[in-house]
C-alpha cells in the first residue's frame, strides 16, 4: 500500500542523512511497528509521508501513485496521525468536540457527525467522558480521545508517532490494548512508531532503524531473535526476551513460555 523507494533526506543543519536510501513497504491491513533509538530517522519517515517535510530524493508511492505536492491534500484526508504530546493535539474544548474536529473540517453533515463521534468514542472506551474538558483527563485518556478523533475519519491508515512515550505504564497499556482491539475488529492499517521494544509484540511486521537505515525487518519473532542487531541499535531488550536470550540461547517467547521452559 505504501512504498518508500530509495528515499534519502537530510535536515539542513546536519551533515549526515536523517534517512539514508530507505526502501520499505507498509502493507494494507497490517500493523507495522517502526522501532529505533532517538535520531534513528523513524519520525522523519512519518513527516515525509505526511508532507510536513519536503525535499527528499527517491519516491514515495501510495497505492502505486507517486506522492506529489498536488495529491498531498487528498492523501492527508486518508491518513490519520496521533502525535506524542497528549495536550498539544487536543483542539476541542471537550472530548466530543475534539473528536468532531476533523469531521467538521471535512464538511461532514451534522447527523452523520454525531453518529461517527459516538461510534469512535465507544471504540476507545471514552463514551462516558464525552462532555469532559481535557484538563479533567489523564494523559492516557487524552491519547485515547486523539485515537478516536483519528478513527472518526475512517482513515485508510492510522499512524502513531511515539504516541505512548509520555504516558505512565497504565496509560500505555490501555492505549496499546485499544489499538489491538481496533486493529482486530476493523483491520485498520497501522504504522506504530516507538523506541520501546516491549511495545511491538502485537504487530504483524516490524522494522528496526538505526542512523537513518533499516537494519532489520520481519515478523516480531524474527526481530526479537536477532538480539545482537537490537542491542547494537541502542535498543533495550524487554525482560522476557533478555532472560530467554541469556538462559535459553535466544529465542523469542512470551512470558508464560519462559516460565514453562526454565
Amino acid at each position: 500500500m505504501i512504498e518508500f523507494n530509495d528515499v534519502t533526506y537530510s535536515y539542513r543543519e546536519e551533515d549526515h542523512n536523517a534517512l539514508d536510501h530507505i526502501s520499505l513497504k507498509f502493507r494494507r491491513g497490517e500493523w507495522t511497528s517502526v522501532i529505533g533509538h532517538n535520531g534513528s530517522g523513524k519520525s522523519t519517515l512519518v513527516k515525509l509521508l505526511m508532507g510536513v517535510l519536503e525535499g527528499y530524493t527517491g519516491e514515495i508511492r501510495i497505492d502505486g501513485e507517486v506522492l506529489t505536492e498536488e495529491n498531498l491534500q487528498d492523501i492527508r484526508r486518508r491518513f490519520a496521525i496521533v502525535f506524542q504530546n497528549p495536550d498539544n493535539q487536543f483542539v476541542g474544548a471537550t472530548v466530543e468536540d475534539d473528536v468532531a474536529f476533523g469531521l467538521e473540517n471535512n464538511g461532514v453533515e451534522r447527523d452523520e457527525m454525531v453518529r461517527k463521534v459516538e461510534e469512535a468514542l465507544r471504540a476507545v472506551n471514552m463514551l462516558e467522558f464525552r462532555t469532559h474538558e481535557p484538563s479533567r483527563l489523564s494523559g492516557g485518556q487524552k491519547q485515547r480521545v486523539a485515537i478516536a478523533g483519528a478513527l472518526a475519519m475512517e482513515p485508510d491508515l492510522l499512524i502513531l508517532d511515539e504516541a505512548t512515550s509520555m504516558l505512565d505504564p497504565q496509560g500505555r497499556r490501555d492505549v496499546l490494548e485499544i489499538l489491538g482491539q481496533i486493529h482486530k475488529d476493523k483491520m485498520t492499517t497501522i504504522i506504530y512508531i516507538t523506541h520501546d521494544l516491549a511495545e511491538i509484540g502485537v504487530s504483524d511486521h516490524a522494522v528496526v532503524m538505526k542512523d537513518g537505515s533499516v537494519i532489520n525487518e520481519g515478523t516480531v519473532d524474527e526481530i526479537y531473535h536477532d538480539t545482537e542487531a537490537l542491542i547494537s541499535s541502542r535498543l533495550v531488550l524487554p525482560f522476557t526476551i533478555w532472560m530467554a536470550d541469556r538462559l535459553l540461547e535466544g529465542c523469542y517467547m512470551l512470558y508464560d513460555e519462559l516460565v514453562e521452559r526454565l
Binding site: 533509538h37 532517538n38 512515550s165 509520555m166 505512565d168 523506541h195 520501546d196 521494544l197 516491549a198 541502542r234 535498543l235 533495550v236
Partner: peptide, 10 residues
C-alpha cells in the same frame, strides 16, 4: 525518567 527512551531511562 518520564518520557525517556528505555536506554536513557537505564
Amino acid at each position: 525518567t518520564a518520557g525517556l527512551d528505555p536506554l536513557s531511562h537505564i
